[in-house]
C-alpha cells in the first residue's frame, strides 16, 4: 500500500507547478497559441510566463517559434507529443489519487 501510494504521488515535477500546469492545460486543447493569449488566460506576468515557458521548452514539453504576423512579432507555442503525453499521464495520476483518497474516506 505504501509503495502504491508513493507511485500515486510521484508527480511529474515539471508539470507539478500551478503556473506550468495552467500553461500546458491551455496548450493541450490548442494546435498553437501565442504568448499574448497564454498571458491573458493564465494571468501570469510577462516575465513569469517566459520563465515557465523556458522550463517547459527545456523539458521538451513545449516548442516555441518566434515569427511575425506582418510586421508584428509573434511568439507561437505548441505542446510537443511528449508534452501532451506527460499532461495526459499527469491527469490520470491525479484522477487515481482522487479516487484512492475518496475510497479511503469511505
Amino acid at each position: 500500500m505504501g509503495g502504491d501510494f508513493a507511485s500515486l504521488t510521484d508527480f511529474d515535477r515539471i508539470l507539478h507547478s500551478p503556473a506550468r500546469l495552467t500553461i500546458v492545460a491551455l496548450l493541450s486543447a490548442a494546435e498553437e497559441a501565442d504568448f499574448v493569449y497564454l498571458r491573458n488566460e493564465s494571468g501570469l506576468t510577462k516575465g513569469n510566463l517566459s520563465t515557465h515557458l523556458a522550463k517547459l521548452e527545456k523539458a521538451g514539453y513545449v516548442e516555441i517559434e518566434k515569427t511575425y504576423r506582418g510586421k508584428i512579432p509573434l511568439t507561437l507555442c505548441r505542446l510537443t507529443k511528449p508534452g501532451l503525453q506527460a499532461f495526459r499521464d499527469y491527469r490520470q495520476q491525479l484522477k487515481r489519487l482522487v479516487d484512492e483518497t475518496e475510497s479511503i474516506e469511505e
Binding site: 497559441a33 501565442d34 491573458n40 508584428i72
Partner: peptide
C-alpha cells in the same frame, strides 16, 4: 479574428 480579436486577446488555434 485576425483584425479584431488577435491583437487584443491573443491568438489561439483549436486542435483539429
Amino acid at each position: 479574428k485576425e483584425r479584431l480579436v488577435y491583437p487584443r486577446g491573443g491568438y489561439v488555434r483549436q486542435r483539429a
